[in-house]
Computed example of a mutant assay.
Amino acid sequence: MKFYCLCAMETVSLPESDLTSLPTVSVIVPIYNGEADLPELIQCLQAQRYPTDRVEYLLVDNGSRDRTSELLQSILHSLSLTQDNIRVRVLSETQIQSSYAARNCGIRATSSEILAFTDADCRPQPDWLLHLVQPFVQKVGQPEIDPEINLEIGVVAGEILPLSGNTLLERYADRHEILSQRHTLSHSFYSYGQTANLAVRRQALEQVGSFRPWLTTGGDADLCWRIQQTGSWQLQYAEQAIVQHRHRSTCRELRHQWMRYGRSNRYLHELYGVTLEQSLTAREVVYRLGRWLVKEIPLVCRQSLSQQNTSRLNASRLQTWIDSMLDTPIGLLCRYWRTVGQQQTKLPEMARHIEPLPVAAPARNL
């Protein structure tokens, strides 16, 4: 399935008349135990250049057990005392522990024309929302419909770039662009965007329903695929709509991430029949480790010795050397965890349920 790429300028500069005619947007952020991320997230939302009278931010607490709820109320109080006219609403989803159920809570609470999604541990850039919404309002030469609205675009995916990290595992993920939307956009079944940076036209949701609330992973692919399968909507990639996201920095976090990828593969296989990822076999492990020991390690050592005497090896070069030496073992671990996640899970019957979204009159003003 093809997707369409919008390569926008680094900074969006629109006439004042264009800014006032932009669609209404609700940015929905599910939060679970997000007290460490909330201060920076709010700063990023306050820095958005999208017209403040056209956007609201819905922060949905998904049953957090830390100080998230307290901090959210404190944020609301602080915003009420400042001159900042950013509109923030705090919602709560406690019945279902799932980020997709939390997003549905936000969807039900608004009638905005465009619904944008990001996560609490993401850092949207100031022009993020302008770039993300831009494909929905491109002029497409169809005056019989509406010269300002592109009704063929139902979903827009922005790009996800890493926040700077210094650990071995963060550097591994950065080299392999683990978080990039380019991987999901090239899926052989249909393109899809991750909900860390995604926008959906409300009309598309009214047609296919919201997220499957009982899913715990894979819901972003499921929603994008349902929308595209109607034949009425396209997905577009807005490369300059950027959020930054932290890579996993510990083995525990990395294991959880890749096992979740495996569970997602299984769920989507059961829902759509898509091919499962090839499982990692013992034979492949033996082959890859043998190649690593016999070929890759000697090659890295020779390259290091030829470039600079080891006694003068500085910290940066040593770090690069270590990264190269351990790239293959880390990659094998990730594939193993994905295989385990794929093999040890089954789609819960409740997760097949799609939450319908009643048709609502679009909100022209918030």
Rank of each mutant, 00 (worst) to 15 (best):
V27T: 07
A47L: 04
V156D: 02
L129C: 07
Q73P: 00
L347T: 06
L366C: 15
E206H: 03
R266M: 12
I242Q: 03
E284D: 09
E159N: 14
T310W: 15
G290E: 05
N265G: 09
H256W: 09
Q240V: 01
L318I: 02
T167E: 09
V12I: 15
E93W: 00
A109M: 00
Q278I: 04
L163D: 05
S324R: 13
L151M: 11
F136G: 09
T82C: 11
P126F: 03
V300I: 11
Q234L: 13
E253I: 00
G193L: 01
M1D: 13
R226W: 06
L293R: 08
A36I: 12
Y267F: 15
E152G: 14
V340Y: 09
R49K: 14
S191G: 08
Q46T: 06
L347H: 03
T275Q: 14
R65I: 02
S69P: 04
P358E: 10
G273P: 05
P147K: 01
S98R: 03
R312I: 00
Y237K: 01
I145F: 11
Q46H: 10
R89A: 13
Q343M: 12
T320N: 10
Q236L: 06
T118F: 04
L129M: 11
T52L: 14
Q278R: 14
L41H: 05
T345D: 15
A360K: 12
G158D: 08
S74Q: 15
T110Q: 02
L14E: 07
H187N: 15
E56D: 11
Y32P: 04
L6T: 00
I322C: 12
R67F: 12
S232D: 12
D220I: 02
I354Y: 01
V137K: 02
S21A: 10
Q303A: 13
T250L: 10
I178D: 11
H187D: 15
R246D: 12
D174F: 02
L91Y: 07
T250W: 09
G290A: 07
I75W: 05
Q48Y: 04
S92M: 05
V340S: 07
D121Q: 01
M350T: 14
G218H: 05
P39R: 00
